[in-house]
């Protein structure tokens, strides 16, 4: 019995390991066709689901033999052929061979930009809330507001998205101009969404500062600002940075709050109030219809997102937060 229980718990623990490796392998193998087809060029190619002319009839004979080389050449050909794409398709539609290409630049840029906007917006406010909760507010107010913030962190993200689309975005669009669904509104709503989470964990970091340190500083005549700036921030700096990066990791992978607001079009944004798309939203909106190479390209995006967030979270957890302990 003892042995069985021990084996059982060991295998459950191993399951975590297997799952994580399994996610990597599954995503990689599902993305394999797209990786083989587009390689790393995928990351900098802004065209998604675009028909391009691969080879003209006259060229076909020589290129069939060395397909492999052709792939490499095709990348460079994209650029040249892009402009006269349409005419060629019209001219001799039956004779030209076209293929659909997928590039991940737009969703990757969209993901990074929405996250940056969200952090820029949420960071100062979250710091303010954390300082308020940890140092300024009286104990009972801090307790109640603290619980309220934690409860808000539990609200499903889809609700932030709906609120953002119908109530927040129209106001922002009135103030700034441009579209209601845009990089800006998506980023801001994402910022509002990570706000409670960021405030709560930053406050926890600040609370680790020993009371003795603070009291000694006050005894020396320091003002509250000086205590916060010179005692609390230096002491809990590493923990705070870790908390920020953790919130960043959460923002990177967020789907629903962004899905309502980003506009979901595969176009590079020219201005901050242009619509575009992010990796999670590209997956959420296109997975159902996609098949073949398109689906594989979505898995490629998923793999990229997974690697980015894996790196970001590991950095936060194992460098900053471990050090903070």
């Amino acid at each position: 019995m003892e042995k069985i229980f021990q084996k059982l718990s060991l295998s459950s623990a191993t399951l975590v390991f297997v799952l994580l490796i399994g996610i990597f392998i599954t995503l990689y193998s599902a993305a394999k066709p797209a990786i083989d087809e587009f390689g790393l060029h995928f990351i900098i190619n802004p065209d998604w689901n675009k028909e391009i002319v691969v080879e003209t009839p006259s060229l076909r004979a020589d290129t069939v033999a060395n397909d492999a080389e052709d792939d490499a050449i095709a990348d460079e050909d994209d650029m040249i052929l892009d402009e006269d794409d349409d005419e060629m398709l019209l001219d001799d539609e039956d004779d030209t061979v076209t293929k659909t290409i997928y590039g991940g630049l737009v969703p990757i840029v969209g993901t990074l930009l929405t996250t940056i906007i969200a952090l820029t917006f949420a960071l100062p406010i979250a710091m303010g809330i954390a300082v308020f909760l940890a140092e300024i507010a009286p104990k009972n107010i801090s307790y109640v507001v603290g619980i309220a913030i934690e409860l808000l962190a539990a609200i499903p993200s889809i609700i932030f998205g709906m609120w953002g689309l119908y109530y927040f975005a129209p106001i922002v669009a009135d103030l700034v101009g441009g579209y209601q669904v845009s990089l800006l509104t998506a980023g801001l709503v994402l910022g509002v969404m990570i706000l409670p989470f960021m405030a709560a964990i930053t406050r926890d970091s600040m609370n680790t500062t020993p009371a003795v340190l603070k009291e000694s500083a006050y005894a020396l005549g320091a003002t509250k600002f000086e205590v916060i700036k010179d005692i609390i921030f230096p002491y809990s700096k590493v923990g705070i940075i870790g908390s920020i990066i953790l919130a960043l990791g959460r923002a990177l992978g967020e789907t629903m709050a962004v899905a309502f607001l980003i506009g979901s079009i595969f176009v590079l944004p020219k201005a901050i109030n242009d619509p575009t798309i992010s990796i999670p939203v590209a997956m959420a909106n296109n997975f159902g219809e996609a098949s073949g190479l398109g689906e594989s390209a979505l898995f490629y995006l998923a793999l990229i997102l997974f690697i980015i967030s894996f790196a970001v979270i590991s950095l936060a957890k194992f460098y900053f937060l471990k050090k903070a302990k």
Binding site: R250, G253, P280, A302, F306
Partner: peptide, 10 residues
């Protein structure tokens, strides 16, 4: 903290 949509894809 893994993105939930990636779990969905998996």
């Amino acid at each position: 903290s893994a993105p939930s949509i990636v779990i969905g894809a998996f």
